[in-house]
Amino acid sequence: MFEARLVQGALLKKVLESIKDLLNEATWECAATGISLQAMDSSHVSLVALNLRSDGFDKYRCDRNVSLGMNLTNMAKIMKCASNDDVITIKAQDDADTVTFVFETPNQEKISDYEMKLMNLDTEHLGIPDTDYSCIVKMPSVEFQRICRDLSQIGDSVVISCTKEGVKFSAAGDLGTGNVKLAQNANVDKEEEAVVIEMQEPVSLTFACRYLNSFTKATPLAPQVQLSMSSDVPLVVEYKLEDMGYVRYYLAPKIED
């Protein structure tokens, strides 16, 4: 028996919104430690890895590991039936071919349940090596979203250049060029407004705007985003979920043929 109850149900809705652009279907791996998911987008350019720790749920029971393969478009349809202040419970029997979502209003006067068919997905699990990144940038997630949106008007790819002074995002296209520079700024009133750079050596890497824009669908999940970069390895874009886990995106760099 698997059962996970989240009073802050809106969080689950936001997590789903953050991945459904990239993934049509995915397997939610449920274990005693929590729920995790790892999947590549259909073109195998990016990878989503997320983790929701069991202690972040208000009630969590997982007698034995279960893999819940879901069509995320269908899951999103069901999640749209939950209000933002609803309490959400996910339930599945061991070896079940369906999952049940229960939505309760805070006053418990309305309780809805939706049963969805599960899928048997042939998922390829990738081992992600531990990497010492040359540059780690922490910045407001809204700012990152804005920069990705703005520069995708200019070109198809963004060059992210990082030095210890700051980080520069650049795009070039038929109409011309655009550059956005952010200076390191840790001395701000609010922690979430800080731009902090940890640099071992400067990097300059090129990434596709389309994927970066998809990653920014996670913006409502966290006030800050962390970009980890090294030459010739995938970029990591991480949104930390307070007291709960993370949503991470890995994006393969553009490479010289």
Binding site: M40, V45, H125, L126, T206, A252, I255
Partner: peptide
């Protein structure tokens, strides 16, 4: 020419 790398070229099958 600049091409798009695939994530599976960087991460190995577990």
């Amino acid at each position: 020419m600049v091409g798009q790398g695939k994530i599976s070229e960087f991460f190995i099958r577990a």
